[in-house]
Design a protein around this nucleic acid. Sequence first.
DNA 1: TTATGCATTAATGTATACACAAATGGATGC
DNA 2: GCATCCATTTGTGTATACATTAATGCATAA
Lengths: 220, 220
Amino acid sequence: MGAMSNVERAVSALRQMIFAGELPPGSDHLETELAEKLGMSRTPVREAALMLQAQGLVEMRPRRGIRISPVSAEDMAEIYDILTELESLAAARAAEAQYSKADLATLATAIRDMDAALGADDLRAWAEADDRFHRELVRLGRNARLSMVVSVMRDQVRRARATTLFMRPKPKQSNEDHRVVYQAIARGDAQTAHDTHHAHRQAARDMLVALLEKHQFHGL
Amino acid sequence: MGAMSNVERAVSALRQMIFAGELPPGSDHLETELAEKLGMSRTPVREAALMLQAQGLVEMRPRRGIRISPVSAEDMAEIYDILTELESLAAARAAEAQYSKADLATLATAIRDMDAALGADDLRAWAEADDRFHRELVRLGRNARLSMVVSVMRDQVRRARATTLFMRPKPKQSNEDHRVVYQAIARGDAQTAHDTHHAHRQAARDMLVALLEKHQFHGL
DNA sequence: TTATGCATTAATGTATACACAAATGGATGC
DNA sequence: GCATCCATTTGTGTATACATTAATGCATAA
């Protein structure tokens, strides 16, 4: 069977519950509660919570339980700033790496899927493909630490996206940007790949932050 | 007395031992050993190790003990790439923030101290002031998550610096760069602050990586 | 009525016990 | 002599027990 430890199970279960909104941002949960809910003892739950705390998903406060970190508009601004810089660097590095068309297949597929989803008005499918594009882009940048930092930040974004996805304008410019980045990487143009992606992310940041502020999600 | 938990004690003790080279990179240590050495049970040691693992300082591998992460030249290249982007962003944001001269006092002091240390040929003092400069720069950028990521990365750099500090050329250009960045921030010139710091870090990166590669520190 | 102090309660931090699984060494067969 | 299998050992993962300490509520006094 799955050679999965209880700690690992706890980490994915808690993550899932957090992303699904079952554990809402700002809510507190005793170690014992969570342990019982997950059918294990406190020990693995505590260790899982420590890991999630290191990723900024929860905060452990003595005697007040495990708090699901709230995500404010200010937090999102911070996070997008980091994503903007690091993903843009990844794009540039990917361009420098002289990948073949075959190496870039996943990227191309993601772009096609986003187009299709946009045509079908399927925002969930679009978000999934968008995620895939960005994840692959970072992978191609070949910096393991950068990938890790970005994935932690993207986890936070995902939590806010559940709320905002259906409020934002159709991501049409977005697909155009992705295509330009893809082509720049394919022909080894690091500068264009970097700058285009940078502008892309910055626009997304400004849009999202404005949206969150307008809807008073200062503490989500 | 000190309201410090055993976990906190374990974290700082282990960090100190790692930075001091008492626990050399690549070495393995059983949880029981460390627990005995620190005079506590396995539980807090385990929790401390989990935290340090999240920061990339150690790796926990079942039955093989807690391994002090080695730092290779490739790792350093990754780390400096991240530092370059994030610190440059912090420099730009600091410039945008329109700080007063008084707000920038710590920065100015650090620069003066570096000059003095350079004149006195005191490399340790120079490194300390350099650290202070970069830490303050990031703080002025006002992005808590960025500060955290940068501080984790800088911890890794510090480990390698112990080895390389006395091999590198005198950091003369470095001081000049810092001064330019400082002045750009003082007059609110985000672009110059960003670009100058970016070039500064990139040069440091190339120098350090070349040095590490030359000396075959592929796995430190 | 409100503030203050104390007793109570209960959650965490830490120690310890134990089962399981992986690594090790030796014995056996080729 | 070398490889393979099994017994043994040992470290970890998890459960549990317990002491400490902070929060809560109640009583008392201003």
